[in-house]
Each structure stands twice: as C-alpha cells, then as structure tokens.
Nucleic acid binder design. Structure first.
Ligand SMILES: NC(=O)c1ccc[n+]([C@@H]2O[C@H](COP(=O)([O-])OP(=O)(O)OC[C@H]3O[C@@H](n4cnc5c(N)ncnc54)[C@H](O)[C@@H]3O)[C@@H](O)[C@H]2O)c1
Ligand SMILES: NC(=O)c1ccc[n+]([C@@H]2O[C@H](COP(=O)([O-])OP(=O)(O)OC[C@H]3O[C@@H](n4cnc5c(N)ncnc54)[C@H](O)[C@@H]3O)[C@@H](O)[C@H]2O)c1
Lengths: 224, 224
DNA sequence: AGGAGTTTGTGAACGGGAGAACAAAACGAG
DNA sequence: CTCGTTTTGTTCTCCCGTTCACAAACTCCT
C-alpha cells in the first residue's frame, strides 16, 4: 500500500511543485544565516504558508525530517533541489532582446538558482553588434546550432506578441521542450512541450479588480 | 433563487477573475479584426480554455450572450472591462528603477490595458538625473506626496529582495492597497492589502521540474 | 407560422487541494 | 530504562474549480 520510494517520488501535485521553489529559497536563506536545523513551523512562516501544508508538500518527496527535531536545512535543501532538478544548471536561451530581454539577460538571479543563459537571440540585425551581460546578441537564425551545441531545452520568449507564436514554433522545431512566455499571447504547442506564461498586465488587472471591489463594497467590511 | 443582479455581481471566484483579463484580450483582438460577434467556442479557443468553463465564467458577470447567436464582441468587452475595473486608467507607481524597472517603465502595454505609470521612484540618488520613458526618476522619499496627489492605490516593487519589505511597508503606510512584487521575497502586509508576486526563477524551476521528469520518466518502474 | 438547427446558461458529478487533527517516532531528563 | 515533550507524517473532511450534459432560448428557413 503506497510503498514510499524516496529515490523516485512520482506524483507530485502541481500546487506542490509550484511551492517547492519557495521552500528552496527559504532554506537557502536559513543556510546563509548559519541555521542548520528548522522546524516545519519556522520554514512555513518563512515561506508564507501553512505548516500543515508544508509538511504535506514535503511528504511527497519522502520522509526527510526527524520527529521531535525538525529538518536539517542543508539536507532538505539538497533534496528539494534534486527533486526540482536544479542541482546542475540548465542552459537557457532568451529570444527578443528589447526592453525586457535586456533586463532578463542582466538578471543575476537566474544563475544562482539553477539556470545559465547561453545565448541571446534577436531578429533585428541592428542589435547584432550589441553585447549584453557579456553575451553577443546573435541572429535568431542561429537558434538551431545553439540549441544543438548547448543541449538547450528551455527557451524564454520576450518578443512582441505578434512574433511569439512563430518563435515558439521555431523553438519547438529545434528541440526546445519548455517555454517561458512573456508575450501577451496564448501559445499553442504540441503535447509534451511545457509552457508557462508571465503576464504583467493580467496581474495588474487582477489587483485592479479587487481594488475596485474595495471602494464599491465598503458595506460588508466597514473599514472606518 | 440566486436572483441575478447584473449591475453588481458579487462573488466571482478567484480562478475566474484571473481569466477575465485573458478573455478581454481575446475580445480586443476580435474587435481589431472587425469581428462583431463570436460564439463561446470561438472565444474559448482564442483564450486557450474550455468553452464550458468560459461560459460559466461569463455567467458570473450576468447573462450577456444570446442563445443561438453568441456574444456581441464590443458589448461583452465593455462588460468585462467594467467588471475588472479598467474602464478608466489606474495610476501606478514603480519603485526600483534598475534593470527591470526600466523595462517596466518603457512598457507600453500597461497604458493600453488600463494603467498609467505616474511616477518612478528609486532610493539611489545617482539615478535622480535620469529620465525614463518621459518621466523623471524621483526620490523614494517623494512617495507620500505622489501617492496623495495622484490618488495612487497600486504600487509595483522592482527593488532588490532585501529592500522589498521596507518598500512595501512604506507603500502601505502611504495608502497603497495593492502591490505587484517582482522581488523574490514573501511580503507581509496588513489585511486588506492585496499582493501578487511575479517570480521568474520560480517559473523556470517549475519548467525544470517537468523537464527533468521527461528524461527520467520513460522507465516508469525501474530507473536503473 | 412552425420546425430544425444553434448556442447559451446552469445543474450535477467529479477530482484535487487546503487545513484540522492526531498517532507515530525521536529525543532528553531522571 | 521509562516517561514526558516535541515535531513529523498522514488521515479525514470540506471546499473550490473543472467538466459534462442538457434544457431553454433564439434564429433562420421553408
Ligand atoms: N517591457 C516590459 O516591461 C514588458 C512587460 C510585460 C510584458 N512585456 C512583453 O514582453 C515582450 C517584449 O517586450 P519589450 O518591451 O522588451 O519589447 P521590445 O519591442 O523592446 O523588444 C522586442 C524585441 O524582440 C525582437 N523581435 C521581434 N520579432 C522577433 C522575432 N520574430 N524573433 C526574434 N526577435 C524578435 C525585436 O527586435 C526587439 O528587440 C512583449 O511581448 C511585451 O508585451 C514586456
Ligand atoms: N532583472 C530581471 O530581469 C529580474 C528578473 C526577475 C526578478 N527580478 C527581481 O526584480 C528586482 C529588481 O531587479 P533588477 O535587475 O532591476 O535589479 P537592479 O539592481 O538593477 O535594480 C534595483 C533598483 O532598486 C533600487 N533600490 C534599491 N533599494 C531601494 C529602496 N529601498 N527603495 C527604492 N529603490 C531601491 C536600486 O537603486 C536599483 O536602481 C530584484 O528583486 C530582482 O530579484 C529581476
């Protein structure tokens, strides 16, 4: 009955997967402070979640805590990193080196969290002279050789919306199987290709919705 | 009973709220193409969701379609915009005009989707000479007068993680009640203040998890 | 005018995730 | 060695969201 096989946990819920990186970050903070052990309660507070939820999340990975004691920070950190797959760096290409692409290329946080930007691509030939964050901006046409050479499986799209689908198609054709999309478009990709979108306007609109709610519905809350 | 009150629908599920902006965008596309009417199926495809889900989502707003016909693009677009609260522009301040802050300030998509950046703030005095996207970068100390003058209720944090909590506290103290946070930190704010976070590293790590899965998974039982 | 064909709006079943609560396990004191 | 304390791992229940399926409502054609 549900024999636990720590080496290859196999059915981690999406909601849990999305929180593991948060735990990882909290554990890294602890480690930097010199904390060697923490309880589920401490870690939960640091990650901003309920401690029962945290324990349940961790239980999907295996049984890495010690009852009555807590978790070894370094050990748990490694286990989560291993589960996510960031014990080694993933090569990443960024396509579309405009406003956003520049910021992404210069962002040091990727490197420290398991990703290495190996190439910056843009269709605009006038950008080809540029060096951003120590990397040449190269032609989008080079994608094939770059993906092949560095075994890239993750691509970031920071082009205008109109170009995003074409860029995604090209990425997929060259073997990229995970895409992070910043363009405000719904991408369609074959089965087996993972897509996540980051849409800042949507985030703001969600905030606006609740904001509007606050001013219209003061009756129920009575914010004096 | 559930008497439907189209003027002030009041209990829209979070999941639905998060999708309304996507529908809004799809409808705007339709309008730009000159399409005046669309079915739930067409809109659903364009938004990348199931059509039953779309209809249920829309039903929370009221009954704005016509059976046997579909939805009037312009009319529905307006109703969704009104529900979200983006029929008029929301003033927004951006704090932290570094790599990411520059990109955000230069992004034209906010303006066209119901938001107007009214001020750019940074703690670094050497940035104060700069003009970004037609706006002066001003001292973070000016936040009080700016928020008061423009009746700002939405703030964007693009500072390093270490500064994010202090910036958030200051925002809240000055009356900002919705925060979009790009710094990789868990913010703690009083009840009644809305926070949404955008964390690019987490998005990549989620992709990495599934990516790793793909290469390990083929041997379902016995990964030698 | 009536019937056939569409498409919406929603009731109901289903699945997954959140949180409370508790038993099992480890540790330390005496 | 035994007991009490602490904290994990897990079970159970509830709620939210998704999806199916269908009656109601509208148009168009004859
Ligand atoms: N700037 C922001 O803060 C921001 C915020 C939210 C969303 N976005 C979205 O991110 C995307 C990029 O925004 P931006 O402000 O950097 O735009 P931008 O116009 O500054 O940059 C786009 C870059 O993509 C390149 N490009 C265009 N077509 C291409 C193609 N087919 N192949 C490769 N490269 C191509 C262009 O040459 C340009 O360098 C847009 O879709 C935008 O809606 C940007
Ligand atoms: N650049 C990216 O693409 C990217 C991607 C993901 C996340 N982030 C996150 O976004 C944040 C900003 O990233 P960045 O690359 O723009 O960093 P950055 O260092 O280029 O810019 C940060 C800016 O914030 C200002 N600042 C610092 N403390 C401040 C304070 N107390 N009040 C006001 N302003 C202050 C600094 O003067 C600087 O101009 C970081 O938390 C980073 O982790 C950035």
């Amino acid at each position: 009955m549900t024999a636990r096989t720590p080496d290859s946990a196999r059915d981690i819920p999406e909601a849990t997967v999305a929180r593991l990186p948060v735990y990882l970050r909290a554990l890294t903070s602890f480690a930097e402070e010199g904390t060697t052990t923490c309880s589920s309660e401490e870690l939960a507070v640091s990650a901003g979640v309920n401690s029962a939820k945290l324990r349940k999340d961790l239980s999907y990975l295996g049984s890495y805590g010690t009852r009555g004691v807590g978790y070894d920070v370094e050990y748990l950190r490694y286990q989560i990193a291993r589960e996510i797959g960031v014990t080694h760096d993933w090569p990443v290409v960024i396509v579309g080196i405009g406003n956003l692409g520049h910021a992404l290329a210069n962002y040091s946080g990727f490197r420290s969290r398991g990703f290495r930007v190996v190439a910056l691509l843009d269709a605009d030939p006038t950008r080809k002279d540029e060096v951003v964050a120590g990397l040449d901006v190269r032609s989008f046409e080079d994608i094939e050789s770059i993906v092949a050479e560095h075994a890239v499986s993750i691509g970031v799209i920071a082009t205008p919306a109109i170009a995003a689908q074409a860029v995604a198609d090209r990425m997929v054709a060259n073997g990229i199987t995970s895409i992070l999309n910043f363009a405000p478009t719904v991408l369609s990709v074959p089965d087996g290709v993972g897509v996540r979108k980051v849409d800042l306007s949507i985030e703001l609109q969600i905030l606006a919705y609740h904001e509007q709610r606050k001013s219209i519905a003061p009756a129920s809350e009575d914010a004096s």
